[in-house]
Write a protein that binds this DNA or RNA. Structure first.
Lengths: 107, 107
DNA sequence: AGCCTACATATAGACAGCCTACATATAGAC
DNA sequence: GTCTATATGTAGGCTGTCTATATGTAGGCT
């Protein structure tokens, strides 16, 4: 998976993965890998800053938790994040439709 | 259309538009707008450098032409560009499939 | 005890491509 | 003469993703 292609879609992926249940960063990376059948293997250096960014934007709420000696920061969708996810889904459909109409004009 | 979303897909769009017939930059912009139903309105500051880049990479061949006093640089796909387009189409399918499987897990 | 792997988070800096804004010039309509 | 459409191009900014590095716990293996 080309890095540039992901650009601008990371937010949608993160919000979508957090839709059903709150997860911490490492679990999010695993969820993305599993749900994409291995196609999405996003590095930690991408995910952690992105989660912070979404938290600053008010789309996610993060909370520290301890699992034994391990510290985890678990993120959940805020109401604003839920609305943003709906927008991202809609934008994704428009995006694929627009690019698709150019790439596969026969469809 | 969000600017970041386009990132990494510009090449595929340009190659695809030039698949049927050679076109110059301005006409490419119009073709993208028309074929996408107005969704894609790519600024000249994006297209012209991208065309140069693809030419340097050997995917396009450009040639100056005169239409009256106007100068135009018409680009056509090279054989390498045609092969690259096939790769871009394949990558696009993988990409939409991967993101789609995360965004719409019910499908 | 010592080592390795998996789990878990984080930051600094590099990189690349798309954008805005600007610059230039012709053609044709009004 | 002015305006709009046509036509190309560059400089510089922005920003999000990546690589590389750092830190530390837990648990298995030898």
């Amino acid at each position: 998976m080309n890095a540039d292609a992901l650009r601008g879609h990371m937010d949608a992926l993160l919000l979508s993965v957090l839709e059903r249940e709150p997860l911490h960063g490492y679990a999010i990376i695993e969820a993305l890998r599993e749900r994409s059948g291995g196609a999405l293997d996003v590095p930690t250096g991408t995910v952690y800053p992105a989660l912070r960014r979404l938290e600053r934007a008010g789309l996610l709420a993060g909370e520290w938790a301890a699992d034994g000696g391990r510290r985890r920061r678990t993120y959940r969708l805020t109401d604003l994040g839920r609305r943003a996810l709906a927008g991202e889904r809609s934008a994704w459909r428009s995006f694929t439709s627009a690019i698709g109409s150019v790439l596969d004009p026969l469809r």
